[in-house]
Nucleic acid binder design. Structure first.
Lengths: 332, 332
DNA sequence: GTGCTGAGTGAAATCGGTTGCAGCGTCATT
DNA sequence: AATGACGCTGCAACCGATTTCACTCAGCAC
């Protein structure tokens, strides 16, 4: 069915090696030969089998793109940027949707079976151990949106979540909120843990301010909405730092339903600055996570590892900034 | 580096064929042999190279997942369902992000180079010709969210967009709107064309009702918002059927900014019923497109084609229903 | 004319598997 | 005891490419 190297060689009346060389640039072929081969190939509609060649070259140009965030709209932006970036570099994303049911072990094995050249783990909720499993399996890996450590086992690109927690706390304090709370994502997520830690640490400096905490079950609209509905049964804080933007939007929705005015009755600050945060009917004040930069850096590191797999792991941490919109009251 | 069939064979003291057979079920191997091989394999940490085996078997279990909708949040749901569904069937999604710059020809060739077993085209904005290019290349293909035709060249799964247009028109009329308009997505999208056609056809029955039309540049928040801002400079219709939900949300945002009340001043009905449409701060009345069913059917057809590539192409069209929320005034 | 260089080519081995075929031992049947 | 059937195994060819190596042949210097 499919036309192969051999067919082209026969048609052109040359050896198979010649055809192979004509299709790999940098190979030693005369211009005449190349033309001849290209002609035959065009006539037959030949294009080389990437998988067969990967057998000998050891490269597939396949990159595993692993994530478990298929309910947070910000990840559509993430996937868009990753896939486009990979494609531009001639790499192909093999997408893995890591659900609660799927065994992480399994996906490691699966991706090895397909001999991916590398793996990008795009998630702020996975344990560092997951990404490291790939490294142990000898697969270059970059953990995007991962937790920074001073001695990373794998490449990590992301933000300083602890500092973001502090930042949110400082902002709430500066705006005169006297009782504040952290409304985080799932407790198991490293991003939640770190944001929480930073938030609390900063507020230690202000013993006069009341501080609360609670956690939603996921980084999702529903989880945020549900958690705020629960909180509404008791006494609310004046200002909330929410785990991320989509959580914030869920929270806003619950507040709106309950007739609470934002920012008059309750202040909200999110994190991410996803596209939707700027939509005028949401208009969320938030901490901007520089997603395009993070992804660019991740791809850069990935490419670097492909040429030098023994590269020493590093952490690239990007600064975040506050984007002021309409869900926090103005500074006094 | 990697441990191969040969290594396992040596370690177990058997032939390479024996090892291969031990790993393919249905093969003729004794229980004793299988145990022996499995033991050796476990000791060495062997797992078979899927790509090498694909060379002889002709199957890669790779499925191209092609889309150009990376700015419409509903597609995160779509990707989630597709990837999970494929994974459950033991298939791997090779994701292709079709941007304006990428040459469609190119992605066809690329996916052939990786010998994908099949391709799912998930888009309502691509021309039918695109999906057909795969069929011509001998690759099983399903076009999800594609245009239905009575004699489809490829499998198509989706909705009857013409009927949806009629449905929206009927609904607006029934609610007493006297001047209505279609605010579509990009004109080049078949879904836009069909929804437009149905909408107009139905309104032909009501010559007393004023009807307008305009088109946004994309199915995205910004495009919807921008188009409504433009319309706001003239006289608005009373009721709009918007190309899809995300467009509707952009429209709502522009209306809100302009101080127009929905549904009092202007009525909006969308299409899709994406998760966000139900968020309380959006609360969009819309036509529900049964996305999970469409994806399930797409996967089912794909699987069917894998076992029988010559299967006659069919169109599976699902009915849509109106989901009433808060952006249309009540029936009189 | 000889020797050397270097570019271009093809034969053959190789990558990691699968599979048709032949050979083997075992067992039941006659 | 001979026969046949059957289950299991290994050999070797093959899938579609790449790459090493040896070889040829110009071109050039001497």
């Amino acid at each position: 069915m499919a036309v192969t190297l051999k067919d082209v060689a026969q048609r052109a009346g040359v050896s198979r090696s010649a055809v192979s060389r004509a299709f790999t640039d940098g190979a030693s072929v005369s211009e005449k030969m190349r033309k001849k081969v290209e002609k035959a190939a065009a006539e037959l509609g030949y294009s080389p089998n990437a998988l067969a060649s990967s057998l000998t070259t050891g490269r597939t140009k396949l990159i595993g793109l692993v994530s478990n965030n298929f309910h947070n709209p910000v990840f559509l932006e993430v996937f868009d940027l990753f896939t486009r970036g990979l494609q531009e570099k001639g790499l192909r994303p093999l997408l893995v949707n890591l659900t609660d049911e799927t065994d992480p072990e399994n996906s490691v094995r699966m991706l090895r079976q397909y001999s991916v050249d590398g793996v990008v783990v795009a998630s702020s909720t996975l344990s560092p151990g997951f990404a490291e499993a790939f490294r142990e399996a000898g697969v270059p890996v970059v953990h995007s949106f991962g937790r920074q450590t001073s001695t990373p086992g794998v490449h990590v690109v992301g933000i300083d979540n602890i500092e973001c927690g502090r930042m949110a706390a400082r902002e709430l304090v500066a705006r005169g909120y006297r009782s504040v709370a952290f409304l985080g994502g799932p407790k198991t997520a490293t991003s939640t843990q770190d944001r929480h830690e930073g938030f609390m640490a900063e507020l230690k400096k202000h013993p006069d301010i009341r501080v609360g905490q609670s956690f939603a079950s996921a980084y999702s609209f529903e989880a945020g909405r549900h958690e705020m509905q629960r909180l509404l049964q008791g006494e609310l804080a004046e200002g909330y730092f929410c785990g991320d933007d989509v959580l914030s939007i869920g929270v806003l929705s619950a507040l709106q339903d309950a007739g609470r005015k934002v920012p008059q009755d309750v202040g909200i600050i999110g994190l991410n600055d996803m596209e939707m945060a700027g939509w005028q009917n949401i208009n969320l004040t938030t901490i901007r996570q520089p997603i395009p930069e993070i992804i660019l850096a991740s791809l850069e590191l990935m490419e670097a590892m492909l040429s030098n797999p023994d590269r020493h792991p590093e952490a690239r941490i990007f600064p975040c900034t506050i984007v002021e919109r309409g869900t926090l009251r103005p500074r006094p």
